[in-house]
Design a protein around this nucleic acid. Structure first.
Length: 620
DNA sequence: ATTAGGG
DNA sequence: CCCTAAT
């Protein structure tokens, strides 16, 4: 079978014609320099990149010539006149500004969105593969988190990956009380007596690159905090209180974060001010809140191919199946549907923040690693091992509903963040979107699980105050209100009921709360962990965290503790039984040594010594 | 908020 | 990783 995506006809929607671009070389090095200005184009770029990746993937897997996908070379760029592109860019931005202004002015987003759609639909030029796409993790959180004073090398985008801890500092003259040796390749930076491991993580870029944020929790990026809160909220199965609207904000919101701790006060306040917009419940209660739903960007462009083509009628994409001899099926995918976006902004939000919000929503989707889902008869084909014939995709069959959807990478089970309206976060099957809320601008973004689209045949659900409260049910019952428009603007002013209905309750899908994406510890991390434990001892995970993982926000002290637990276990079992990325035996030995040592010595006995001076410890 | 331990 | 109980 030939899976061919014609470069001229296919994937047109992801092509980027006008969008200004930097040369590949420049993109890889400077792309994050001025994220704010670039984010718009970044989305387009990512779209283009996505197309490129898809193209590349399919072609390589289909034994076609993968080299058809060529990145824009510097050469090409120069030949292509930077100035032109640059001016185009300004045009684009200006245009976008206009659109968004119109949107905000009229509160009528439909027409404008359609125009945007058309824009997307006209994208042409798949000759570019954006490096970010190489590492799904890298681009997920949005570029705007990268500060200008980024000291990390951006030459190699792959370094931005979670599992690629970048070295902050290489002076690793860190003595281990156990080994008395040096950490060879560990990436430690010495900070007084603290050894910190510098990690770059998509979610943490912001923190790490902005010192301000690392020191005081009061300045912690609201996003992380918010995510935690959201998770917590979504996690708690019993928060069913239906306070009066008036008290809602306080009773509900404060409940979670009001704490006794005085010193965290500012933190909470900050958190609150930043996060309140996240809680869609509150939001929805706000009279002026506007929930916008952006349908997938897809254009149902019709190919002018004269061939005998079965065109997929699925809303999720525009696909064609060409029948050819030797029972090969040729697909011509004209457009993909991008998973829906949920965007919610207060009326008082600025246009700029709306832009960022939409931007981030898009980024979250296409930057988080995208897979392709196949839909037949409106149903998602889940069994990847089935043949096309078995699936009903064959020359004979009349494939009137063949569709493709872009969906978040299902490999990592990231949380579906229902920043605003949890009821919209339908739990649906394995593919969960790594949605990340954007709260920087006081705006929340919710990415809808794309598989929802698939399961529902891609129908859109109208959101309004009537249907919102029962939306979750509607979705799960497949009683979807079809909406012709790609975007529905909602002025919601009475969703009290909704606000009080936990997702779990209304949907019965308690699994909704996603567990965090699995993030295997790297050797460097293990190294750091071992080192910290050696010094601090077990049972003081907070200290361990502070010592070596303060900047690795995705590693909680619980994580560290758990990791230590597994390390000890790993060290005990035979190498054959170990799985995952192998941990150097040397480290495992240290683990055992430290474990043995600290199980005898109470770690508290050594507290003072550990904090200020490296106290040589006797290996048991 | 942390810690410890089971799942 | 998650969840919880106990601090």
């Amino acid at each position: 079978m030939v899976l061919k995506k014609n470069r001229n006809n296919g994937l047109r929607d992801f092509q980027v014609p006008k969008v200004p671009r930097c040369p590949r070389s420049a993109r890889t090095r400077v792309p994050f320099k001025k994220p704010v200005e670039d984010d718009r184009s970044c989305a387009f770029e990512l779209l283009a990149s996505l197309a490129g990746e898809l193209l590349k993937e399919s072609e390589s897997s289909a034994s076609s010539n993968a080299s058809e996908v060529k990145p824009l070379t510097e050469e090409r760029f120069h030949n292509g006149s930077c100035e032109e592109k640059s001016s185009e860019k300004h045009l684009e931005i200006a245009e976008a500004d206009c659109i968004l202004e119109r949107i905000s002015a009229n509160n009528n987003v439909n027409s404008e969105i359609f125009k945007l759609e058309n824009k997307f639909g006209n994208l042409s030029d798949t000759n570019r593969v954006i490096e970010v796409a190489n590492n799904p993790e890298a681009g997920r959180s949005g570029f705007e988190r990268l500060s200008v004073d980024d000291k990390f090398s951006l030459k190699d985008p792959l370094k931005l990956g979670v599992n690629s801890p970048s070295l902050v500092n290489l002076n690793s003259n860190v003595k281990s009380p156990f080994r008395g040796g040096l950490f060879p390749n560990a990436s430690f930076s010495r900070n007084g007596n603290d050894i910190k491991l510098g990690f770059i993580d998509d979610d943490e870029k912001f923190i790490r690159r902005n010192k301000v944020c690392t020191k005081s929790k009061a300045f912690r990026p609201s996003r992380c905090i918010a995510r935690k809160i959201i998770r917590k909220r979504l996690t708690s199965k019993h928060w069913k209180v239906a306070p009066k609207l008036k008290d809602y904000e306080h009773s509900r919101y404060d409940k979670g974060i009001t704490s006794s701790s005085r010193k965290r006060k500012t933190y909470y306040n900050f958190e609150r001010s930043q996060c309140h917009t996240l809680l869609k419940r509150k939001k929805l209660s706000d009279k002026g809140s506007m929930v916008t739903r952006v349908g997938g960007f897809s254009s149902e462009s019709v190919s002018d191919s004269p061939k005998k083509v079965i065109r997929g009628n699925n809303r999720s994409s525009s696909a064609k199946v060409r029948v050819s001899k030797d029972s090969h099926v040729k697909f011509s995918i004209e457009s993909f549907r991008i998973p829906e976006l949920y965007v919610e902004v207060p009326e008082t939000a600025t246009v700029a923040s709306l832009k960022r919000t939409v931007m981030e929503a898009v980024m979250n989707i296409i930057g988080g690693g995208v897979h392709v889902g196949v839909l037949v008869q409106g149903k998602k084909v889940r069994d990847d091992n089935r043949t096309l014939r078995q699936t009903g995709i064959s020359c004979k069959e009349n494939i009137d509903k063949l569709g493709f959807v872009l969906e978040p990478s299902s490999s990592l089970a990231s949380p579906v963040v229902c920043a605003g309206n949890p009821s919209l976060c339908e739990a649906s099957e394995p593919t969960r979107s790594p949605g990340t809320p954007s709260i920087d601008s006081g705006i929340s973004v919710v990415k809808q699980d794309s598989s929802l689209l698939a399961n529902t045949g891609g129908d859109l659900v109208e959101i309004n105050h009537e249907s919102a409260s029962s939306l979750a049910d509607s979705i799960s019952d497949d009683k979807l209100t079809k909406v012709s428009g790609a975007l529905v603007s909602v002025l919601d002013n009475s969703v009290e009921a909704l606000a009080a209905v936990p997702v779990n309750q209304s949907t019965g899908h308690s699994e909704l709360v996603q567990r965090r994406a699995r993030r295997p510890f790297t050797v460097s991390e293990v190294e750091a962990l071992v080192h910290a434990v050696e010094e601090v001892g077990t049972g003081r995970w907070r200290d361990v965290k502070l010592r070596c993982f303060e900047n690795a926000d995705h590693r909680t002290y619980v994580d560290l503790k758990d990791k230590w637990k597994t390390l000890v276990h790993t060290a005990k079992i035979s190498p054959q039984q170990r799985r995952g990325q192998p941990v150097p035996q040397e480290l495992l030995d240290r683990v055992l040594a430290a474990h043995a040592y600290w199980s005898i010595h109470q770690s508290k006995h050594h507290v003072k010594h550990q904090t200020n001076s490296v106290q040589p410890l006797v290996i048991m």
